[in-house]
Design a binder for these strands. Structure first.
Lengths: 326, 326
DNA sequence: CTGAAAGCGCTTACAG
DNA sequence: CTGAAAGCGCTTACAG
């Protein structure tokens, strides 16, 4: 069923049918009626591929995330989708699992003109090749600071947030504060570690212990915590850079027969619903996840409409939520 | 940068360039070299829209979920993506939030030929209009039994699983077993409630209490449990149809000063990582989420390749995991 | 093994 | 207000 057939049915040209469908130009009421009737009668649906090919505009954006099962990530994606929907855009979600091949494969959608732009929530420092693939296409990095190039980004001030957490723990009298961090190829992981180190240094604390989780999962958090507990000097506080990791830490601590926060205080990150589900409930740094997602879309759409816009780096507000764990 | 330019650069016809790109037909080595060189030199990327329009095949599938933040849902989506990737397909994810307008808008991608087929994880009984929109297009319902029409489905036997849970609780001496269910427009919600009722009846238990959560969230679970606790006769066991709901119930019970499983036993559903994160850890019905997702894709691709295949209804195995909560 | 040509289903100047 | 025609960038019989 094509626009041709509708034109024939309605007794007009394809141009007129197109004008009716797109509300462009003006069409004599009588003809509009006939076209509408023909569309109705034949249950016609325009072929979007043809339209997109012709207009070189797809109204779709690609979203690359490393792990959709991470609740923070899921919230950001919801924000992205909301704002995209509001502007007539669709999202194409790709869960890369930080896998190079999957990411590369997804990026062919960009170069193949299937999408108008891309939002990423993944680490790119290790992957210069991907950066090259994206080239000059509209691109926003989400919840991951981009300090170079023409890519925009939106997130929070990770150093400040991290410093706040460590200072909070020091004020509570904690002496041996450990860090459960993510892979350092993530910029935010480097920034939070920098905040951790700077405050400890500033306060004359020499004790350090950092474990790196291979992914933002419950199991990785538990494993990291178990390692920390096996050390000669046990930490009396742990700062995990994700609520999911912190949840894993809670279990390891409980299984070691220790109590929280007395033996060990625990602080998470992200402020996801998960932080309220575990016990003790997690103190955490709440990120405005929905807003981050929405802002990422508005930056991207602005770039799509105005390709000459310079890159923007937006910092959103965060806040510390104090609960029973620390 | 189009195939035309490459042809000119390489001094061959566009047909030859196309043959090289698609490894179809045979091309004299010398010409192949030249084409490859031209592609390399100009960093050419084929326009996928044009290809898809021409071949009437997009190698994309639409996935409609009601709430991607639900961990079970996220797992299924991972399975879908894995299998799709393996077969050269991409997924277009749409988080409908059970919103009619969003669902309808997403379905234009189907009628607009942007995708080759659709996998849904949402309730459709309330939405005959959407069913009409999908029409005869390849469609698989995931984790939701479809008992009519030409739509295939893959899930577990919800009645059996539910019956098993209730029988387990009865065997443990529970007298007043409550159910925290989801919206009955979901087929699985109706089936699990049927299992609940049948076993209680069979065992001569007259006591019933059912609460309906408006969505599969922690808060909805907590609210439902609070309502159950306010009743004159408190339940001594609760079966929630999702781990997320059960997690909310755990908090409500703990906040009421009751202990688990002594005062109240709790059983969840899905077998997500969340069930291990909460305390007490949840007894739950584990669904093979990744496999469900994978199977959904293979059913769908089969339907795409062989449109005359009759609808299939696949039941996967589930298993009960016993933990501290019940 | 290769190329000229038709055609996928649209949109959009352009001329009237 | 309307239509004939060009063209978006591909693929694929068809003829040679």
């Amino acid at each position: 069923m094509s626009i041709q057939k509708i034109a024939r049915l309605a007794g007009v040209s394809v141009a007129t049918v197109s004008r009716v469908i797109n509300h462009s130009g003006s069409v004599k009421p009588h003809n509009r009626e006939r076209v509408l009737a023909a569309i109705e009668e034949s249950n016609y649906q325009p072929n979007l591929l043809a339209r997109q090919l012709r207009t070189a505009r797809s109204y779709m954006i690609l979203v690359l995330v490393s792990n959709i099962a991470n609740p923070f990530c899921a919230e950001v994606v919801k924000g992205i989708e909301e704002e995209a929907e509001k502007n007539g855009y669709r999202i194409l979600l790709c869960n890369t699992g930080s896998d190079m091949a999957r990411s590369r494969s997804a990026l062919t959608l960009l170069s193949g003109k299937i999408v108008d732009g891309i939002i990423t929530m993944d680490a790119f420092s290790k992957l210069p090749e991907l950066t090259t693939m994206i080239g000059q296409a509209p691109w926003v990095q989400c919840a991951e600071y981009a300090d170079e190039g023409s890519v925009s980004c939106v997130g929070i001030n990770d150093i400040d947030a991290s410093q706040y957490v460590i200072q909070h723990l020091i004020n509570r009298g904690r002496q041996r504060i450990a860090l459960i961090n993510h892979d350092l190829s993530y910029k935010y992981a480097r920034l939070r570690e920098r905040g951790y180190n700077s405050v400890l240094e500033q306060n004359g604390h020499g004790w350090r212990a950092v474990e790196y989780a291979s992914e933002l999962s419950f199991d990785a958090g538990r494993t990291a915590m178990e390692t920390l507990l096996r050390a000669d000097e046990r930490p009396d506080a742990v700062f995990a850079v994700s609520d999911t990791l912190a949840a894993g830490a809670l279990l390891a601590i409980a299984q070691a027969g220790l109590t929280m926060p007395d033996d060990i205080a625990v602080v998470g990150f992200d402020g996801t619903p998960l932080a309220e589900m575990v016990s003790p409930q997690l103190s955490t740094v709440a990120q405005p996840s929905l807003q981050i997602g929405r802002k990422a879309v508005s930056l991207l759409l602005n770039k799509i409409d105005n390709p000459d816009t310079p890159a923007e780096r937006v910092m959103m507000d965060w806040r510390f939520i104090e609960r029973a764990s620390a």
